[in-house]
């Protein structure tokens, strides 16, 4: 169980302030890349509610991220709606999308669940990429209108940091709550949860919907900070990248996903400025981590002081007994 304490909440706020303070050290031209990293961190945290805590390996989380962004973009660019209307519309329609896709995706179990989420996000991706009239197709949509106070890299960075911090605090609260504790128990042993009076499907459903809505909120942030959207945001590439980030950082540590995002995104953007082989470097990095830390980097920090900051009471036994969703793993 996660513990909710003022110390941990304060730590998250401090982490947020540190991310905000990056504007003091990062050159202006690099700020958008940092902002994007912050946005992805929030998305990865929302994904880990499913992966690490519910044992639901979703591969299509990009669906919600892209959906939130596209609703804002279409509202703003195609219909000239004000930003607050766009945001309200994005979040409320994301609830509907999350409910519908949860009903579909949760029919399947284990990796089939993952592939079903992937299929859903690919359907949405192809629809978006081909539908030039509504979504701008492959080109995406450019020119999202934001209020004046938001029309600077600095303000957008602060918004991204603020929302991501809020999402993290909310997730900490949820994981510490009875629901979060039962979600963990469900990952360990769904049958036992059912025999104690919980309905596994209903619990997974709520987790899926929450994760979907939070990802859509991060999508809204992406739309605001980029003032543009493009279809890869919704595709399986985004979902798979987020999945890898979570796995790399450590899905059983609370802040593991952020660690994964920071490592991968920082490497990618740094290499990108010097060479076009960022994929090569990132790929090698991921492969190296697979060999050195198959359970992610977070858990291996656990013993250290840094790890205690990161982790919370995650038990090492978890690494030794993979949850039941991973039954298809190598014998």
């Amino acid at each position: 169980m996660e513990h909710l304490s003022w110390r941990r909440a304060l730590l998250l706020v401090l982490l947020g302030l540190a991310a905000a303070a990056l504007v003091l050290v990062v050159p202006e031209s690099r700020l958008p890349a940092v902002t994007r990293t912050v946005m992805l961190a929030g998305a990865a945290m929302s994904l880990n509610l499913l992966i690490g805590n519910a044992g639901l390996v979703s591969m299509g989380h990009g669906l919600f991220l892209g959906f939130g962004a596209y609703v804002v973009a279409i509202g703003s660019v195609k219909h000239g709606l004000s930003l607050s209307w766009c945001i309200a519309l994005a979040i409320s329609s994301a609830v509907v999308l999350a409910v519908v896709s949860a009903i579909i995706a949760l029919r399947a179990r284990a990796l089939f669940f993952g592939l079903l989420t992937l299929a859903l996000s690919q359907v949405a991706f192809v629809f978006v990429a081909r539908n030039y009239a509504l979504t701008g197709g492959d080109d995406g949509l450019v020119g999202i209108n934001v209020p004046k106070w938001l029309d600077s890299d600095l303000a957008q960075h602060f918004v991204a940091v603020g929302v991501t911090t809020a999402v993290c605090l909310l997730l900490l609260m949820i994981l510490a709550s009875p629901f979060g504790a039962i979600l963990r128990a469900l990952r360990d042993n769904p049958e036992r949860v059912a025999s104690l009076g919980g309905h596994p499907k209903h619990i997974e459903f709520i987790a899926f919907v929450i994760a979907g809505i939070l990802a859509a909120i991060m999508g809204v942030v992406a739309a605001i900070t980029d003032q543009a959207v493009e279809p890869t945001l919704i595709s399986w590439t985004t979902g798979a990248t987020l999945l890898v980030m979570v796995a790399l950082g450590g899905r059983f540590t609370f802040l593991g996903p952020i660690l994964g995002v920071v490592i991968l995104e920082t490497t990618r953007t740094l290499v990108q400025t010097y060479s076009e082989h960022s994929d090569l470097v990132v790929g090698l990095l991921v492969m190296g981590c697979a060999l050195a830390f198959p359970e992610g980097i977070g858990p291996s920090l656990q013993g250290s002081r840094l790890g205690r900051w990161f982790g919370g009471p995650v038990h090492m036994a978890e690494a030794a007994t993979p949850p039941s969703t991973e039954r298809t793993a190598a014998p």
Partner: peptide, 19 residues
């Protein structure tokens, strides 16, 4: 290590071969 190491390794490989 089960499926997670494989996911990471093969995803990394995908990027490397593509590059």
């Amino acid at each position: 290590g089960g499926i997670w190491g494989q996911l990471l390794l093969s995803f990394g490989l995908l990027l490397v071969v593509n590059d």
